[in-house]
Design a protein around this nucleic acid. Structure first.
Ligand SMILES: [Zn+2]
Ligand SMILES: [Zn+2]
Ligand SMILES: [Zn+2]
Ligand SMILES: [Zn+2]
Ligand SMILES: [Zn+2]
Ligand SMILES: [Zn+2]
Length: 612
DNA sequence: GAGTTTGAAACT
DNA sequence: CAGTTTCAAACTC
């Protein structure tokens, strides 16, 4: 049961309502059902967080959880899930509270100050996390932009991802693996990798950590098997609590699964994203094929930065460190929220774009993503700042462009660039489009990379992966999403060992496919237009564009997904919201994400996430 | 798992 | 803004 009215009592109802607004639950259900949870989930496994300075800032929301919960509830029929498991936790409730009172929420959470001190960090962490999860600040308004946050999460993303997944990903993904741990994974298909597709616009954060959902995705089918393997649960609980306890509770098992990724950490950047998605029919995989499973999610392993510098992937991605992290002296925990936030501000002050997504894609316009044509390539995406590779030829993850699954641009200062994604000019302004076409080559020339193109075409095999970060613009930005090339764990091309050596030439079986892709790129693709939106400069405001073109789901998925790269984990998806990236949003006014967010949140605006 | 390589981030 | 140092990931073994 759900009782509709009471949030507390029947969170589900509430949630639904909200969801409905945003996501149109019904449809979703169908879609979802049709599709696969797995995919969705996996894709979604992100985390939402709302950030409020006043309150403290960080909150995690759980994107996944929500989504899961939400879905689950529907699936289950009633959505009792939440009820069943833990009353308190129900996601809905959570939201409700958020809506209702920010402050209260906090209190509710309780993170008692005293407790903080208490015991060891671990405890703290847990508590904190838990607390964190409960976000205070959030306000979700119902529909409207403000309410953006909904739980729709990543559906879209998932959707696109799904396909990919279906194809190959399954294998790959399943592999879990964390970092490079198992080479095996890679093996997967090098060839085939699905070409990377990108959705429309996108913001990627290289930083984003991905969740590693990995095989575990257990969540996958909530329906069929809610219960995850025991292990998962445990992990989930223990680790994940942070993000979602609340959520989790609701779906206890289910949610957990999601969470289990472990990676779920809270995000402090805040923002959420919503997304909606749907899609994907089939269920695919579930666990890992491999069997291994993994776990994988590793996150940072900082030794000296205390996870308060951009060196730390977690911090850079706007998330708190969590179990999977093996950092030392870590201060990037909810417990130390104040420190984290203040540090973040400082960094943003120095570089407003520091936490902005590093890779952004513009959609090409026309294409829709939904489709997901194979063709889509991330071609359009590009790294904002470009790389400065000297020795890697932009063929390894050392290169942020490659890591992000995007080609190098004129912004790059790389030497000997052989980026398999190609290189294009950065984009200048809108005009760039035209330029680009021709420009493409030009650039190459300019850069010196001529050959590259060819190679690229040929080679395309590799897949980088990218992490997406959704930007959640204040209003909707569905437009900008990026699809990762491979979604999930893409495995990077494993050059050496991996499959064949010839990675380039030989194995690339998929070459064909890629070729198409490239072709596109080369021909027209390259030129992507870059909407200003993404651009740093570009004012985000503009960007926001309307909804997603895609048609499918309107809802604005603002979230971001990040896929983790190959090696790392299978994939981690995180939804991260970006506070406000200056770049994206409007930087200036909004200022740093933090700031803007704060002010916004606190005072007025409801946009919570949205940047204002 | 230790050790090396790499390029971004941070610092000067 | 360039040069150097610091840093942790990516990669290698
Ligand atoms: Zn760290
Ligand atoms: Zn960490
Ligand atoms: Zn840490
Ligand atoms: Zn590069
Ligand atoms: Zn580059
Ligand atoms: Zn390059």
């Amino acid at each position: 049961m759900d009782t509709p009215d009471r949030a507390a009592a029947a969170p589900s109802a509430a949630a639904r309502a909200e969801l409905m607004d945003g996501c149109q639950p019904e449809k979703l259900n169908d879609e979802i059902l049709g599709c696969d949870w797995d995919d969705l989930i996996s894709a979604t496994s992100g985390e939402l967080i709302a950030y409020d300075e006043d309150h403290k800032g960080v909150q995690l929301a759980v994107s996944n959880a929500e989504s899961c919960g939400f879905l689950l509830s529907k699936l289950t029929g009633d959505g009792d899930i939440s009820d069943r498991t833990h009353p308190s936790s129900s996601t809905q409730t959570y939201y409700r509270e958020l809506l209702m009172d920010e402050d209260q929420t906090e209190n509710a959470q309780l993170v008692p100050d005293g407790e903080k001190n208490i015991s060891t960090e671990e405890i703290q962490d847990n508590l904190y996390e838990a607390n964190g999860s409960i976000p205070t600040g959030y306000k979700v308004e119902t529909q409207q932009q403000r309410g953006m946050r909904r739980r729709c999460l990543v559906f879209e993303a998932a959707g696109y991802s799904n396909r990919i997944v279906q194809k190959e990903s399954v294998m790959d993904l399943s592999v879990s693996t964390c970092k490079g741990k198992s080479p095996v994974q890679n093996h997967s298909n090098p060839g085939k990798t699905p070409s990377p597709r990108v959705l429309r616009g996108i913001g990627l954060h290289l930083n984003a950590l991905a969740l590693t959902s990995k095989d575990k995705m257990v969540c996958q089918d909530p329906i069929s098997s809610l219960v995850p393997s025991s292990a998962t649960q445990q992990e989930a609980h223990g680790k994940m609590l942070s993000a979602g306890e609340n959520f989790i509770h609701s779906g206890s098992e289910l949610l957990e699964l999601q969470m289990d990724d472990d990676c779920s950490a809270g995000v402090f950047l805040g923002n959420d994203h919503d997304s909606s998605q749907s899609n994907s029919p089939q269920k695919k995989r579930r666990k890992a094929d491999n069997g291994d499973d993994g776990e994988a999610c590793k996150r940072c392993s900082c030794k000296k930065s205390k996870c308060l510098k951009l060196y730390c992937e977690c911090f850079a991605a706007g998330v708190y460190c969590s179990e999977p992290c093996s950092c030392q002296g870590c201060l990037n925990k909810p417990i130390h929220e104040e420190i984290v936030l203040s540090t973040r501000k400082q960094i943003e002050f120095r570089n407003p774009l520091a936490f902005a997504p590093k890779v952004i894609r513009m959609s090409d316009a026309g294409q829709d993503i939904t489709g997901e044509d194979p063709n889509n390539t991330p071609a359009s995406a590009r790294h904002k700042r470009g790389c400065n590779c000297k020795k890697s030829s932009c063929l390894k993850k050392y290169c942020e462009c490659y890591q992000g699954g995007v080609g190098c641009s004129s912004n790059c200062r790389c030497e000997g660039c052989k980026n398999t994604f190609g290189k294009r000019d950065a984009a200048v302004s809108t005009e760039a489009e035209e330029m680009k076409q021709g420009g493409e080559e030009a650039e190459n020339c300019g850069k010196e990379k001529e050959n590259d193109l060819q190679k690229a075409n040929v080679q395309s095999e590799d897949q980088p992966f990218l992490e997406l970060v959704p930007i959640t613009p204040p209003f909707d930005v569905s437009s900008s999403l990026l699809k990762p090339p491979n979604f999930s764990s893409a495995k990077p091309p494993r050059p050496t060992k991996a499959r064949s050596n010839s990675s380039r030439s030989s194995s690339k079986a998929p070459g064909a496919v890629h070729s198409q892709k490239f072709t596109k790129i080369a021909n027209s693709g390259l030129n992507e237009e870059m909407p200003d939106i993404l651009r740093d400069d570009a004012s985000p405001g503009n960007c926001v564009k309307t909804s997603s073109p895609n048609g499918k789901r309107v809802s604005p998925p603002h979230n971001a997904l990040s896929v983790s790269p190959s090696q790392k984990g299978g994939r981690k998806l995180i939804l991260k919201s970006i506070p406000s990236f200056p770049s994206l949003i409007g930087d200036a006014s909004s200022g740093s994400s933090m700031n803007s967010s704060e002010s916004a949140f606190n005072t007025a605006s409801p946009l919570a996430l949205g940047p204002s």
